[in-house]
Design a protein around this nucleic acid. Structure first.
Length: 939
RNA sequence: GCCGAAGUGGUGGAAUCGGUAGACACGAAGGACUUAAAAUCCUUUGAACAGAAAUGUUCGUGCGGGUUCAAGUCCCGCCUUCGGUACCA
């Protein structure tokens, strides 16, 4: 009996406790619940729906590295997720896919080191990425996932290559056309075609028709958009492979420290340069930042200039130079050839041979980047002289690595008086400097400016620079000394890699001549091999593959494609990911068109973003896609930098001194794992367990705490400053992570990750939750909103709408906080307001919004609600607070009617007591009234 | 070197069109509640000087100049940091 009486008490107590716990903001339960709900209901699956306008929001897909995601990765994903959810709430049919750029060097390096197959590593990494991404609650339609290493995907990468191989660029039509059309032209008219080519060839129709197959193929190679040619690479003989500039430091490979040299190799290239002008023009219509457009413009580097022929004294060769400053031709005092120039052989005299060879050997050891970055002046005299075509003067020909073979003609006319690099060279080798612009002083430095009046310049004297350039062009043309030419800095893309983990080329060799495979037999799958190193004979890893040849026994290409191959058209594949008959169907492409918003880092500005545009334009020429630009709007999210923490070890001890006391000792700063530091306070026990060395560490504390120092550095394992998003999600929830990443600062700025502020946004979410629940009960009022509440709410709607449209997510989070602060001080728990905020907050914090939206009685997802509209009439202010300033300094404020005229404001202010007090009888010289804002009185 | 971006309190940042610099948040200090802790709530918080206080004065947006009634914002010249620089992705 006794027990029976006691039970109800106990029951009530536990029931109460349970409810109390359940009704607290239990993010982990809520997030799991709604992630499952979205999955079960395919909430984020999207299909073509012609009744709705489309919106395509794309993230740059990640390379799944072994380190997993750190908190920097999701920054852009969260921003694009917010935008996607916002557009959906506004009634758009939103395509928001995700996939993996899964071919690449790290997986291959890891295979070499650990023996684990890159496919295994990659799959493992992808699964890890997916697990991490899923926890953050993104609205990706995963049914559209693509992986660049999947044969079903790279079939279309190979297909595109075949199209490029089978196309040439018609300069008259300004588009790519089938190579068959070019052949027809050759058969009819010979080489007189206006087509993009590696070198200009000359043959008649009958000559063409008489050529053998092999010769014809070699000529066609000169025109194909995907073509084979000799290119210069950084080769490391010891590693047996080509290295990126990044993999080399001071002439040695970073891996192993072996010597690297410049070597010529026969490689596939893509004729991106044919598209240079279109890539430039296309920028005008894109909604990209000016700085990014500027970067691309500089990269493409269009310059209009003159190509001029110089004769060489005593030799029957003349060579061409390119210059944008034809006007300075009378100031030429020497010529410079790039060390790689074909002319070097021809102009080097016997006497200079040894010196030139020595110089060339030294240059071979330096990468292009080192050559450009280095200010040291080096060079060697070739022994020959060129003849200035205008003055007939003899000028020495030098060889120097500040001239690059890849740009222009690989030879320059040096005008030391008016070019700083030529000037440095002339000073160093004591060559003459002749100024050709009136009144300039070249005793200390060159005069590079393009203005002034010409002097020392024969028929150009008295003209200004602009006129002189034009006059020289005319002269050069008339005297057959050269031609006017547009030059681009943009080079063709080298498309071969001597690696395993990449797309195989759909190419086989017959009698040494490359042929592409039949499209129907695609994909050509990457063969299994066991050794990922180059073969003993120096061939790429695919040389190890067994039976790597066609059925007829013709060997396949041993190179594979580079990283950018798979990432150049992936955005098209998302539109129609499982289509086995086309890269993308016309129907899907017609509907989705191109990407409305593309989000990614600036590091892709000149790589991926040029290649993708090129690739898309090529497909546009083929009629495969309907838009000639892939990414209409582009936003670069900033880098998340690491915030490292330091402990200070007293010299020769195992004793660590707190930050503010460290100056009293001789200390060494040591990186400490940021995950055992909270608000810069070190967890002493965790530190002792962190590494065996610190097990017996002693501490000198301040106020009982160990305070760590800090610094902003790159986020990396070696700095112990990597923060994993999973840990943040576990501790605070995905909604807090999302909100905090946005609150951290402007999307486009790079900023350090600092967990210190995360409590603020977490408190905000708890506060929002507590506005719905009072103890264990949902406590929401049905009352109408007051004018003040309406104003606060509509201010929020207006601000968030504006901010999301402008990708200013940090300020929209602040706006939410302001609104909640206002409503809670008004003790507002009215449904009308809370429901609206739920919808506004849903793109930012989808889980809590979904939970509370349902708590308010809805049984459909908040994702399908309608974005609220603000009503300007609630926002009207009857009065305005004017700042009253004197000579620009604000001294007081005044509350005046909002609709008061400028004149009345002036009158009221001038006649006011405060103003006359401050003026103290001084005379007013001028009054400026800015309506609604400020009055400035000048005295 | 070249190209691009950025520098604002102890910290992250706000100021959207040249118009009250420091919104919002963190941290810190003090207080309330609690046996205590956590959580929550309240107050203060750019610096210097003066004042018992209300408050006032001056300085202040990397540095040096300039334009303007008015500059974090525009112009010129520097410094520092970050990204790219063509095979890392």
């Amino acid at each position: 009996m006794c027990a029976f009486f006691l039970l109800p008490h106990l029951y009530i107590f536990t029931k109460f406790a349970q409810n109390f716990v359940a009704m607290e903001y239990n993010f982990s339960e809520i997030e799991k619940k709604w992630q499952n709900y979205w999955k079960d209901n395919s909430t984020y699956k999207v299909e073509i729906d012609k009744s709705k306008p489309k919106c395509y929001v794309l993230d740059m897909f990640p390379y799944p590295s072994g380190a997993g995601l750190h908190v920097g990765h999701p920054l852009g994903y969260i921003a694009s997720d917010i935008y996607s959810r916002y557009k959906r709430l506004c009634g758009f049919n939103v395509l928001h896919p995700m996939g993996y750029d899964s071919y690449g060097l790290p997986a291959e390096q890891s295979a070499i080191q650990t023996g684990q197959h890159p496919a295994v590593t990659t799959t493992k990494n992808i699964n890890r990425y997916r697990e991490q991404l899923d926890k953050i609650g993104f609205c990706y339609d995963w049914s559209r996932e693509v992986r660049t290493c999947d044969p079903k995907y790279y079939k279309w990468t190979q297909w595109a290559f075949i199209q490029m191989f089978n196309s040439y660029y018609d300069n008259d039509a300004d588009k790519a056309k089938p190579i068959a059309e070019l052949i027809a032209k050759f058969e009819k008219n010979g080489s007189s075609v206006n087509a993009a080519s590696s070198e200009s060839l000359s043959f008649t129709a009958s000559e063409w028709n008489s050529y053998h197959e092999k010769r014809k193929q070699s000529i066609l190679m000169n025109y194909r958009i995907a073509y084979l040619s000799d290119t210069r690479v950084n080769f490391c003989p010891k590693l047996g492979c080509v290295l990126a500039n990044d993999e080399i430091s001071e002439g040695l490979s970073i891996r192993g420290g072996y010597p690297v040299e410049q070597r010529v190799m026969r490689q596939w290239s893509l004729r991106v340069s044919a598209y240079a002008q279109r890539l430039l023009d296309g920028l005008d219509h894109l909604d990209w930042s000016d700085s990014l457009k500027e970067t691309q413009r500089n990269w493409i580097g269009r310059s209009e200039g003159t190509e001029m022929k110089f004769k060489i004294k005593g030799l029957d060769v003349d060579f061409e130079i390119f210059t944008t400053r034809a006007d300075t031709i009378f100031g030429v005092t020497f010529m410079v050839l790039a060390p790689e120039s074909d002319y070097v052989e021809k102009v080097t005299t016997k006497e200079q041979r040894a010196a030139v060879d020595e110089y060339l050997a030294a240059v071979k050891r330096r990468t292009e980047r080192e050559r450009l970055a280095d200010r040291k002046v080096t060079g060697v005299f070739s022994g020959s002289y060129a003849i200035n075509p205008l003055t007939n003067e003899e000028i020495p020909i030098w060889i120097s690595d500040y001239v690059l073979s890849g740009y222009g003609t690989g030879a320059i006319m040096a005008v030391p008086a008016h070019d700083s690099r030529d000037y440095a060279f002339a000073k160093h080798f004591n060559l003459p400097i002749i100024p050709v612009i009136e009144g300039c002083d070249v005793s200390e430095e060159s005069f590079d400016a393009k203005d002034g009046i010409m002097t020392n310049s024969g028929f150009l004297n008295g003209k200004n620079v602009k006129e002189a350039i034009a006059a020289t062009k005319v002269y050069v043309k008339e005297h057959n000394l050269g031609r006017v030419k547009v030059n681009y800095r943009l080079r063709d893309a080298i498309f071969s890699r001597q690696r395993y983990w990449g797309e195989p080329f759909p190419v086989y060799y017959k009698d040494g001549v490359p042929y592409v495979m039949d499209e129907k037999s695609l994909p050509l799958e990457l063969p299994e091999i066991e050794n990922f190193l180059p073969t003993a004979s120096g061939e790429p890893p695919l040389g190890h593959a067994k039976n790597w040849c066609t059925q007829e026994g013709y060997p396949y290409e041993l190179n594979t494609m580079p990283g950018f191959a798979g990432s150049s058209a992936y955005y098209l594949r998302y539109m129609d990911p499982s289509n086995n008959n086309a890269l993308v169907s016309h129907e899907a492409n017609d509907y989705w068109q191109n990407v409305d918003l593309y989000l990614g880092g600036t590091e892709h500005a000149t790589g991926h973003l040029i290649y993708s545009r090129f690739w898309n334009k090529f497909l546009f020429d083929l009629g495969v896609v309907c838009k000639d630009e892939p990414f209409q709007k582009l936003i670069n999210q900033g880098m998340i930098q690491g915030r490292s923490n330091f402990v200070y070890r007293i010299k020769d001890t195992n004793k660590f001194v707190s930050y503010n006391l460290k100056d009293q000792y001789e200390v060494t700063p040591i990186h400490v794992d940021v995950n055992i530091v909270s608000n810069d306070v070190l967890d002493l026990e965790a530190f002792k367990n962190w590494m065996p060395d610190y097990k017996n560490a002693e501490f000198v504390l301040e106020d009982g705490k160990y305070i760590c120092g800090w610094a902003v550095e790159k986020m990396s394992k070696s700095m112990f400053n990597v923060v994993n998003p999973d840990l943040v999600v576990e501790r605070y929830g995905a909604d807090t992570l999302r909100l905090y990443e946005m609150f951290l600062g402007p999307l486009e700025a790079s900023k350090p990750w600092d967990t210190n502020g995360i409590d603020g946004v977490h408190r905000f979410l708890k506060k929002f939750w507590s506005m719905f629940y009072n103890n264990d009960q949902l406590n929401v009022s049905e009352d109408n909103l007051t004018a003040e509440e309406l104003k606060s709410l509509h201010k929020l709607i207006k601000k968030v709408t504006f901010d999301v449209e402008n990708f200013s997510f940090n300020t929209s989070v602040a706006a939410f906080m302001i609104c909640l602060n206002e409503l809670s001080s008004l003790k507002c728990n009215k449904k009308e307001a809370l429901e609206t905020i739920c919808i506004l907050l849903a793109p930012f914090a989808p889980h809590i919004s979904e939970e509370l939206f349902h708590a308010l009685g809805h049984n459909t997802s908040v994702c399908d609600a309608q974005w609220p509209k603000y009503d300007e009439s609630y926002l009207k202010e009857s009065t305005k607070k004017y700042a009253i300033s004197f000579n620009g300094k604000v001294k007081s404020t005044m509350e005046l009617p909002a609709d008061m005229s400028k004149e009345d404001v002036e009158k009221t202010v001038v006649s006011s007591e405060t103003v006359s007090k401050i003026l103290a009888g001084k005379e007013i010289k001028k009054i400026i009234v800015v309506p609604g804002k400020i009055v400035n009185i000048v005295f």
